[in-house]
Amino acid sequence: MGARETTVNVLLVLLLPAVALTALFIGEAFYITLATRIAILALAAVGLNIALGLGGLVSFGHAAFFGLGGYVAGVLATHAFNMEPVAFGLPGTTAMPAIWLVAILLCGLVALPIGLVSLRTSGVYFIMITLAFAQMIYYFAISWPAYGGEDGLSLSMRNGFPGLNTAKPFPYFVVVFVLLLAGLLLFHRLRASRFGAALEAARQNPARLAAIGISPFAIRLVAFVLSAMITGLAGALFADLNRFVSPSMLSWHMSGELIVLIILGGKNRLFGPLAGAALYVLFEYALGGLTERWQLFLGLVLLAVVFFARGGLIGLLAGRPRHG
């Protein structure tokens, strides 16, 4: 990483806690929620960045994992509240660590068969087949009345974390921010590792990777599953932020939004997802207040990025990536 990229990254990391702390002192809880929202979307995109950035796998179905994570939080909390077992006599829970673990494991389990099928294809077929799987889960959620169907599911209160009052915005921001940092650290280590080397080679030249004895399919499958797990964790956090989960978290708009975050920030850049999420939420907030059609302007920005700044915001600020 170049010195300039390091500076940009440090500033980006400091940005969210700075906003949240300032908001805490001036008593504007809304801005803490805004910073939390950025951090959660960034974490979801960090997950996708493993598949899309490192692996070159344009998954148009990551909303499936984002939404599943959200429903894990909602469903477990609902069962705990009603004191009904979820299944096989297992109780629900309102403890975040347990919810996160279930969300991560479930998303990994679901991503495995999806990956096994989807990764047999590539290019536009891969995009379409991941979209198809996600839409199946979306329609399933809509048509299953037990958990609110189309109306979604409200959480009567935010789930808890031992020793913290997560009902207050700032402690919850801290929880989310620490998880984002963990996600970023994981991405960083992953990219520098043997697995990361193989995954990036699978993106650059799969025939070469096979010729030296590493199956690109196996490497991509592991990446896809890891990627889904992180996005699923972010989904659980998102449900807790809004105290609400609905099928819209599973919809293809959400999948597209996650891709947009990465393109805006800079794909395959460590801090691309965070930069993209910050930009996206700021746009949504600043322009959303002026017009309902704020996404039109977002579209224009996206066009500008694709034509003039392929490296996204990070590329614009820090220059081209370095490879060792």
């Binding site: 280590r189 520098a192 590792s193 043997r194 697995f195 990361g196 590493i214």
Partner: peptide
């Protein structure tokens, strides 16, 4: 050893 996730190769 391609399924090692943490140690930097460099």
């Amino acid at each position: 050893t391609s399924l090692r996730f943490f140690r930097p190769v460099a």
